[in-house]
Amino acid sequence: MFGLESGSGFWNPVLWGCIIFIAFLLLYGIRGFGRSTYKKGTEQESSFLSGNPESTPEEMQVKASNLYWGFTSSMKTLYNGLRSMHTGDVGDYVLWFIIILAILFVVIGVM
């Protein structure tokens, strides 16, 4: 009822839930060994400790379009290629369709 067999492996949500539960119990146990140094009402509460004045949260939040800047800029060549592929021109959409048709014609026709 619960399980799933793939021939080489299996998946069981109940078993998975038990393991996750035990993992959380262990985590909670480990947390008990720590000690609390957090004091309310002190400077510890502010999110940013330096000499500079603190910015507002709106200014500090990284915007969505900048979030994966590192990833996209390190793969710049790939992304430039992908961007130049998506021209937004309907003629190019049809051209891609014809190109794929031609490739498959050649591959299947030769076979």
């Binding site: 592929m85 998506h86 937004g88 190019d92 959409y93 891609w96 369709f97 190109i99 794929i100 048709l101 498959l104 014609f105 299947i108 026709g109 076979m111």
Partner: peptide, 24 residues
């Protein structure tokens, strides 16, 4: 028949949104 196979599969793949015919 091979031509028909290619035509049918490619057109339906385009309608299903397979790259590089996915732009629509």
């Amino acid at each position: 028949d091979k031509i028909i196979l290619v035509l049918l599969v490619v057109v339906l793949a385009m309608k299903a949104g397979v790259v590089p015919m996915h732009m629509w």
